[in-house]
Design a protein around this nucleic acid. Sequence first.
DNA 1: GCGTTGTATAGTTAATCTCTATCACCATTG
DNA 2: CAATGGTGATAGAGATTAACTATACAACGC
Lengths: 305, 305
Amino acid sequence: MTLTDLRYLVALARERHFGHAAERCNVSQPTLSVAIKKLEEELAVTLFERSAADVKITDIGARIVAQAEKVLLEAGQIKELATAGRDPLSGPLKVGVIYTIGPYLLPHLIPRVHEAAPSMPLLIQENYTARLAESLKRGDLDVIVVALPFEEPGIVTQAVYDEPFRVLMPAGHAWEKEKAIAASSLAEAPLLLLGAGNCFRDQVLEVCPMCRSGEGLQRTLEGSSLETIRHMVATGAGITVLPSSAADPLPDGNALLSVRPFVAPEPFRRVALAWRVTYPRSGAIDVIRSAILASPLAGVRPVNR
Amino acid sequence: MTLTDLRYLVALARERHFGHAAERCNVSQPTLSVAIKKLEEELAVTLFERSAADVKITDIGARIVAQAEKVLLEAGQIKELATAGRDPLSGPLKVGVIYTIGPYLLPHLIPRVHEAAPSMPLLIQENYTARLAESLKRGDLDVIVVALPFEEPGIVTQAVYDEPFRVLMPAGHAWEKEKAIAASSLAEAPLLLLGAGNCFRDQVLEVCPMCRSGEGLQRTLEGSSLETIRHMVATGAGITVLPSSAADPLPDGNALLSVRPFVAPEPFRRVALAWRVTYPRSGAIDVIRSAILASPLAGVRPVNR
DNA sequence: GCGTTGTATAGTTAATCTCTATCACCATTG
DNA sequence: CAATGGTGATAGAGATTAACTATACAACGC
């Protein structure tokens, strides 16, 4: 029993004439004749009474035809689903973003994606890079926004933008008179840091290796966020390093904080998209990339592909 | 897209492993692999993400698999319908009976058929032979009970029983002293007859050709029934001829009527079943025949096949 | 009876399906 | 870092199936 057989069956039930039914199915009369006969043998029931005058459907035949129509209808739905699903910009996209990007990127990203792909709702999760990577590989996420380096088997990454680091200090801090801060000077400062697991923490520590080993003044704030740290800096609890997208857009007339760039070469992080090599909706990823690049993130520099 | 393809698809969605899915489908791994690939090409969507680690279903793939399961379920129903319909004794049987048999046969027939084939309800129609024949050929009836001769193209008949005719007269009639009545004497009697269209009318007239041509005393009662005629005989309106099944089972102690047989050779009618040669439920017809023969119809003689 | 209409059958060709064998890829491991 | 094992894809051969054309066969109607 094949779907073709069922189509022949339904056509014959409608036409009650082998020749006409065959014509409607674009096959020869013997083809349809043989198919119906085969179907009757397979089901071991007589579906039609053939006589010279006409073709009559049996009671059981009528019931089976009705069921066959249902099967064909449902099968047709598969094609419709496929047609609808062919558009990579249709259907939800599961996006992961690291904690130190999400709050600054998403408010810009979401409306832009919605505009570019109205029928692609975003299901967004913020997490650590390691967790995002796991979800991505498991298939719980489709694409993630992380900082490089990021290497995983089966995962491709595409750099999107570079983002310089900034030094954030309370207003009136001694460094406020400097135009730019040297990375080395961080070792002497009471540096507020995110907890372990945040890649940005490691990147900051890399900027100033002495900070890590020196057991200096820096303090790790477990379970915290860049926003919390910024508030702490404002209260004079210390200084910190922020990515430019988080540091530069200070609320107008914020008198409690000062931001300074690093002296060249500025330390920066490279932000990238990552997805499974096998992920088929590359068009959706292109939309995400474009939306990110169209977002007004302070201080960032696009990375050419 | 075939039902086999859909089975492969569902198996792969369940197993998430080409080899295992193939095994479950009793085919080789390349067979399943190629089938899935073909399906993806036909639908122009990626259903699975293949990687070394594992096989992941895409969102659209999951939706299509769910639909495929529905299709397979509905297709399975076809086989179930066929299995249920394979029994000729299941499902209603549309039976037609002529007016002069129905009232005497059906009260016996129905319970016997119900006992022999409980899941074969009878849909019964009484009518003239000509109407029954028409319905039978059109497929509105499956089998009819008629009196021979009955010849129609595409219709087979099977004699079931012979039924002698009787003379019915009011009690006290002059013929009551006779043990048997000669057919020829009917010409002189006030014979009450059924209306045109009833085959029994013609059969009675055939018993006594003079009645037809002679413009004798006989009266045709249009739109009447044997029962009505019997009541009229009881009131002394005339005499009549009845089939034995209608004449013999007189209500106990009916003092108003007398029944007499004809002198040999007794006139009789041959009652038969008829159905389309193409009708597939011959088992159902056998049940009807057996039930008729098991019915205690007064005076009838079974006809060997 | 003979032609017409309609379905079944035969035989052939073409497409499809399925198999075995093998390749290519990747991830793990000594 | 090369070897290994597990996994899916591909190639080519063989078998099955489905389709066609031509024709037979059956049942009616004139």
